[in-house]
Design a protein around this nucleic acid. Structure first.
Length: 454
DNA sequence: TTTTGAGTTGTTCGA
DNA sequence: GTCGAACAACTCAAA
């Protein structure tokens, strides 16, 4: 009698506790691997995000000998149906902690229970599952640094040995696959390689290369100084334990470990405040004055397509659309621009990011945005407004990043690419700035002051 | 119990 | 050109 393993964001074979549990629960180690493509999630994804998922599923399917059973539809009906067809006692999975996933899993659990089947959660996408790290009084942390210390003190286990299940599926009938959906065609260089093997190779290349200079290079979007592992982690092609096990105590390694801890911190915050996926964590900010109407919509559109006239912002937004990824430094600058120069609610920008990011994760994305907007945990002080030009000059000093993504600025030499208005004849078909940053900065500070005074 | 100091990511202004 | 101060308010842990 096989076990059913319901895969979601854990598309790997190594260090997979739920897979181990599924194999151990079957006398013969027989496991049916199921992925349910939820139309609600697929419909909201942009081309690059869809392409990543399709390729990740294909890579996983290949690694298990073509036995992945893919079904399209609502997991609430499909999971119980496949479990019954397989004659599985239990359905195994890694726990999901995002609000939509938690509700979905509870519904599936209830449907399975009606048939006398158990839903077994083993492991999660985190080194320390959300809810485990608490303050002395038992409540959740709201400040990152104390969380980080407690998270380190809590510790995590070493990566698990790979299980060797006997995968089961059928060519036709109740355990057959509907197939992986067709992915949008993208240039071969857009995504790079996808899947578990690619994830491990990328980690090893980064670990043996740029990691030792991570503390000095991580803020440079013009340099290949980051791990580029975010999407691999998002889809569970490798587990953060694998990375943590390789890290030492050097300053560079510590900075990288802290980035992994941010991912875990935001998952913990969301776990304790599920409403913060779409509401202001600090509800007072719901009463802030935000711009609405046709003009605001037009400015939002300029931001989305990368035509604001601010090269560093536009480069980031175009990198997002073409690659489904954006360097973290640029995420902060583009987010600050939407919130503090365009005076739009953070949710508009966060939704756009989530649709297009290949690594888009509700906890990290929404809380990163809330940090920028000043309404989240460890919130940025209200007066911290990024200057899009200064940030570009500081972190892309030669203008290479900007020219890579904004071809209209290709004729501008060096750092001049950040200030095309100083060479108007060289910027071909590039828009003038849609606003005056100093003016909007003051306007933003005024609105924050007004909110405080209420 | 109360106090104290520190806390991812910045900018501008005036000396 | 460089440099320090100012720009709030709140959480948390240690003293």
């Amino acid at each position: 009698m096989p076990s059913l393993l319901w895969l979601r964001r854990d598309l790997r074979l190594h260090d997979h506790p739920a897979l181990g549990a599924a194999a151990a629960a079957s006398p013969d180690g027989d496991v049916v691997g199921l992925y349910v493509l939820d139309p609600a999630l697929w419909a909201g994804a942009g081309d690059v995000r869809r392409a990543w998922l399709a390729r990740s599923l294909a890579a996983f399917d290949a690694s298990m000998g073509g036995h992945l059973v893919v079904r399209h539809g609502d997991p609430r009906s499909i999971v119980p149906e496949v479990a019954a067809a397989a004659g599985a006692d239990g359905v195994h999975m890694s726990a999901d902690f995002a609000p939509y996933g938690v509700r979905r899993d509870e519904d599936v659990e209830a449907a399975l229970a009606a048939d006398g089947r158990a839903l077994v959660r083993t492991g999660s996408p985190y080194a320390v599952s959300p809810g485990r790290v608490r303050k002395g009084d038992g409540t959740a942390y709201r400040v990152y640094t104390p969380f980080y210390r407690a998270w380190c003190a809590h510790g995590w286990r070493a990566p698990a040995q790979p299980a060797e299940p006997s995968w089961r599926s059928e060519r036709r009938g109740p355990l057959s696959s509907q197939g992986i959906p067709a992915a949008p065609a993208l240039g071969s260089t857009v995504l790079g390689r996808v899947g578990e093997a690619a994830a491990h190779e990328r980690w090893e290349a980064f670990r043996d290369g740029a990691l030792d200079r991570y503390d000095e290079l991580r803020d440079r979007p013009d340099v290949d100084g980051t791990s580029m592992l975010s999407a691999h982690l998002r889809w569970g092609e490798l587990h953060p334990r694998t990375l943590l096990a390789d890290l030492g105590d050097s300053p560079a390694h510590t900075v990288f470990r802290k980035e992994l801890a941010w991912r875990e911190f935001y998952a913990d915050v969301l776990h304790h405040a599920p409403g913060s996926a779409y509401r202001w964590l600090d509800e007072r900010f719901a009463d802030m004055e935000y711009d609405v109407g046709p003009d605001a919509d037009a400015r939002f559109e300029s931001w989305c397509i990368g035509r604001t006239g601010f090269p560093f912002v536009d480069a980031g937004m175009r990198q997002l659309l073409t690659e489904g990824w954006m360097h973290n430094r640029v995420r902060m600058v583009t987010a600050s621009f939407l919130v503090k120069d365009l005076h739009l609610p953070w949710q508009r920008g966060a939704s756009w990011f989530l649709r297009h990011l290949r690594d888009g994760d509700v906890a990290s994305n929404q809380h990163g945005w809330q940090w920028t907007a000043g309404c989240g945990t460890d919130a940025a002080p209200y007066f911290r407004v990024f200057n899009p030009v200064t940030q570009g000059l500081r972190f892309d000093p030669d203008g290479d990043y900007v020219r890579r993504y904004v071809p209209e600025l290709g004729a501008l030499p060096g750092k001049a690419a950040h200030e095309p208005w100083t060479h108007p004849l060289l910027a071909v078909d590039y828009p003038p700035p849609i606003l005056d940053h100093a003016t909007e900065r003051d306007e933003s500070l005024r609105r924050y002051a007004e909110l405080r005074a209420r």
